[in-house]
Amino acid sequence: MIPTPRRYHRLGQPPVLLLALLCTVGAGARAEVPIQRSFLRLPSSNGHGAVMLDVEQRKVTHFREHLFATEEPVIDAAGNDVFENGQPKVIHARDLLFDAFFGLRSGGTQRWLSTQEADRDASGYAAWAPEKTGGTGLGALVQRVGTLEATTFVFAPQGLPHASFVMALRVRNTGASAVTGVSAFSLHNFHLGFGRPGVMADLDENGETVELSGNDFVEKGFAGVLVARPLGTVARKSAWLSTTTGSQNAYSVVNGGGGQDLRDFTAQPSAGTGWATA
């Protein structure tokens, strides 16, 4: 994410929930081996909302407030459906997320994983069993930083009856030597401002308010309320406006490398344009 509002948590090791879905192929079917992966957007839904992990952009790019793309038709004062160019006008469900991704500190420096290449062959839906392919609703983005293998898992939890998603990071050392000074960060950039431009278009980010409640960040705006809750132990909690510069902007801090920690958010709730909460 670039100079738009950001949210992050610096996390420990959150648990990963695997949702098993076994798919089978008939005995008469012939398996074709693809030359290269062409399916790079991995959606997940729990029936209430929908989330999408984009392997090509190396981040979560879509979080819809409802599963369906439209909420209701547009009607006029007389109660009649409104048509435009012969087609009924509709009220769109909203995409509440600009993007979200993890960061990783190792080897004396830090970076956002959205800047690192993805292993497209290893990425995709997580396997339902070892040595198998796919079969779950768990999107997996695999990246490598030196000997560290970083896998981002994204899914809509079936046990939570709300529009929601889980973003979890697994970091595994594939080398023979220990890697020290490892930390993980997560960044989430929600948009809760005006507009209903369509399910694949971003809302405005005006009039957003951020509040810290324990370890949870609560963000409010015209579009509603979102809560970002860490699943592991949190070392830092940071939030900033899109116009913030320097050490107060957590995106810039991590993107600049080095080992500078993020600034904790201590401000009172206030409305602004382009809040980043975490």
Rank of each mutant, 00 (worst) to 15 (best):
I2G: 04
T4P: 00
P5I: 03
R10A: 14
L11S: 04
G12A: 13
L21D: 12
V25C: 10
G28P: 04
R30K: 15
L42W: 07
G49I: 13
L53K: 11
L53N: 11
V55A: 15
R64I: 03
E65C: 14
A69S: 06
E72M: 14
P73E: 04
A77L: 08
G79C: 09
N85I: 00
F101K: 01
F102V: 00
T109Y: 08
S114V: 07
T115G: 10
A118S: 12
G124I: 07
A126G: 02
T136F: 08
V145P: 00
L148N: 11
A150Q: 01
P157F: 06
P157K: 04
Q158M: 14
G159H: 13
H162T: 03
A163Q: 00
S164M: 08
M167W: 03
M167T: 06
A168Q: 09
G181Q: 05
F185V: 11
H191G: 15
G195Y: 07
P197K: 09
A201Y: 11
E205I: 02
E208N: 02
E211H: 01
E219S: 13
K220G: 12
G224V: 05
T233H: 13
T245S: 12
A250N: 03
S252I: 09
V253A: 09
G259N: 10
F265W: 13
A271W: 04
G272L: 05
T273M: 01
